[in-house]
Design a protein around this nucleic acid. Sequence first.
DNA 1: GCCTCCAAATAAAACGTTTCATCATTAATA
DNA 2: TATTAATGATGAAACGTTTTATTTGGAGGC
Lengths: 340, 340
Amino acid sequence: MEGNKVTIKDVARLAGTSIATVSNVLNGTGRVAEATKQKINRIIEELEFAPSTAARNLRDKRSSLIAVIVPYMETGKLMDNPFYWQLVAGIEEGARSKRLQIILVGVEPDETFSFVRERQIDGLIVIGAIQGSEIMSRIERLSIPVVFVDSYLQNDRLPHISLDDELGGYIGTKHLISLGHRNIVLLSGKLSEKGVNYYRWLGYCRALAEAGIAPREELVLQEPVSALSGYRVAGKIAAQLSEASAVFCLSDVAAIGLLKGLYDLGISVPQQLSVVGFDNSLQASYTIPALTTVHQDIAQKGQRAIKQLIQLMDGEPVEQQHIVLGVELVVRQSSASIQF
Amino acid sequence: MEGNKVTIKDVARLAGTSIATVSNVLNGTGRVAEATKQKINRIIEELEFAPSTAARNLRDKRSSLIAVIVPYMETGKLMDNPFYWQLVAGIEEGARSKRLQIILVGVEPDETFSFVRERQIDGLIVIGAIQGSEIMSRIERLSIPVVFVDSYLQNDRLPHISLDDELGGYIGTKHLISLGHRNIVLLSGKLSEKGVNYYRWLGYCRALAEAGIAPREELVLQEPVSALSGYRVAGKIAAQLSEASAVFCLSDVAAIGLLKGLYDLGISVPQQLSVVGFDNSLQASYTIPALTTVHQDIAQKGQRAIKQLIQLMDGEPVEQQHIVLGVELVVRQSSASIQF
DNA sequence: GCCTCCAAATAAAACGTTTCATCATTAATA
DNA sequence: TATTAATGATGAAACGTTTTATTTGGAGGC
């Protein structure tokens, strides 16, 4: 309640100094006598004075706010894949340690970014932007520091953190091939948008080619990334793709749905069908059977993104514009040698 | 690029009017001739003028920013339970439709909230605050609209959205009792903090009492809410609690871990042990066997929270200070009649 | 032709900071 | 003692809006 907000003026008045001096104490700038400093600090404490960010922002033309752009689904909600939560958690952690705050913005690929200029957002982290989308040109005109995550851009000079998706697709597939599988279904998201799925698919193709296996288009299923998709695909595989002996899902959530679908159909994993996921999400080790999957360090992805963004914002040169994080195969129980 | 930001002055100059008029056009206030309005709008478009939120905030003493306080774990990251993501997604959706932005703040129970005053945050959504924690008195002194979610407060006049946790605990337990179970393990979070777990536990006790079953303290396990906890508990049950025929987990994540732990130990669900979860998370229908669980509408929880907060911020009277959402039992395959 | 009234437009203050240039005081140096 | 240097403190401008009170310029009424 306390009526009106206490301002720097109140502090100055009570301390018997000028507001400039208070400001100096606040920011550790200029020279202030120790005694004065102490006195002012005491009064600040007493009054519970908190400097107005709005005034600072106006003065400094900065907001110490960074926006994280998360894609959203047709339902109007943020993507429900827990992957994003882990990513955001990583970002938030890094931001908090630098006393930055993040604003979370769900945004449709081609939506306007006016809020960035209006709010004088200091930096932007964009998750999952895709080549050629309107978003890119919009962002470039903003001329603020931006770090892309999991985005594929024609312009390689833009800072971004991504994964070696192609390699991920490759090692997942190769693993299955080395187990004797030749008819490997790929359960992917849309390939037309050249995003992460596309590159993982390239890796899949490379592994097949290397093994002398002709790629078959009907084995590549493009479905929304969700558990439900995986579940439904199980039926499709049983009905139309009985020759398949393995499925490589380009996300763990889809794999989880698939495992369940197969279970309901009485198809045993890995005896009758091997399943490999992608992400090594928190859930991956708790599926039955435990999911063999391509590991990525999601939290680190977020941390690297925020770290690079902060460097950019501080005007420090960034050592690497494009950071590609590694992938690693985690073999668990959902994949096995093909049975004859 | 473009050098400096374009301000309302630039617009006024080019339109040959005063900035006051431009401001009026911007906000639809005052009277301004149609021709002038058109001209100004054209110029705004042309210049891509975006009014400075900082200046507005300073003027209006508002920020049109609401903060969502999410608890974080000892690791320094936001809680990794996907539950929070669904909740935040619901909040974000509601906020976006009102052109509000949310800032996501990970905060340790007793941390300072100075940023709220500094940023002149207009509203606050606090998730999972508990009675008696320092947080409460801090928040009250802020005197801004606050909506609590999943929080238990001594002060019932504070607006909050919660679940009928007691009932949830009751129906989950009752379900198991009706299946003939009498030795029901409760896998809970900490009960000393009187949060959601505490009230669910009360419901558990009530159901037991109603059935004339004496509560046994050693059946109530207080563990961190995580899949790993659930997994470990499986071992404990096998080793020390062989008389138990059912486990009621107060979160789906823990149930998922438990199912896996039991599977690894060769204990079949539901034949040897029934398992019931809580939340009906997205994963619940994909476990093997599918999880019987107490359903709550998480997204709605978030939406109601933001809706109520907006009402509060608009100064509208809120119909109900304390909204209690319903729970519902979803019976799937992880629970069954006790086998003799 | 004078007065009143109304629409349209505006000047100026206020919001709460930071910082630059300046000033006062004391200490150090010649 | 006179000059310079260093320290500590300050006044005032600037940041970009919104809003209140005021001004301007006609149009209508008499």
